[in-house]
Design a protein around this nucleic acid. Structure first.
Lengths: 113, 113
DNA sequence: GTGTGTGTTTCTGATTCCGAAACGTCGACC
DNA sequence: GGTCGACGTTTCGGAATCAGAAACACACAC
């Protein structure tokens, strides 16, 4: 690992050397479990083990790597109790993703009638 | 590999055995380049090589794997000329992701002031 | 002390990815 | 006819990322 750093707008990002914000966002959110973790944190702060319990199949190694990414990206912080919670901009992302939830239901109906 | 199949609502999905639509969506969209490909197709049908040209760093092997996923999920189809284009529900996803674009800009301002 | 619950890191093997090369096809163009 | 280029697609080795289990440290309860 050594050199891991989370994508941030303004930096070179996988898939785009321009660092365009949306590309940085897609690089970050396109990593496994990133979207899901943000989704789980919408409802309030959670500890690491609580997150693991909610995300069936998530391994702890990836969890902590992803949490580091999200903290780096200023979407998540640790509160005084050590639990992880969304920052303001992280919470905004939650609402920005809300249409996705509604879409997923339409998608589901579309597929199996 | 052999047995790859794209996540679809109603089936067991990585991260959730319930097959809840949103979890299926996040599994699908959480794969590398999936979001980005949908984003690039928003503006109209594109051939495989055009997609490769737009996605700097995307390899052809992953492109075709992802395209298979998206076609499986009924978000993308091939038109008569062989180009890939969004289905109706795929286009709806595009608009559902639109708030993400606006959010990414706010995020960018947030990070580097 | 012996548990049991956290948070976190480390290791190994499996999956996924990149990158480049190769294949076939089609339509120029000579 | 042949050759050239642009396209769609598949294959393969090495690199990055992942899952899964194990282990560590730290609390607090019994």
């Amino acid at each position: 690992m050594t050199d891991r750093s989370a994508p941030r707008p303004g930096r070179a990002v996988r898939g785009s050397t321009t660092g365009r914000p949306l590309m940085a966002a897609m690089d970050l959110l396109g990593r496994r479990w990133a979207l899901r973790l943000l989704w789980e944190l919408r409802s309030g702060p959670l500890g690491a083990r609580a997150l693991l319990a909610r995300c069936d199949g998530l391994s702890s190694s990836v969890l902590y790597e992803r949490l580091r990414d999200l903290v780096d990206a200023a979407l998540v912080v640790q509160d005084d109790d050590g639990r992880y919670e969304l920052t303001d901009v992280g919470r905004e992302l939650g609402t920005a993703l809300q249409p996705l939830d509604a879409w997923a239901r339409r998608w589901s109906r579309e597929l199996d009638g």
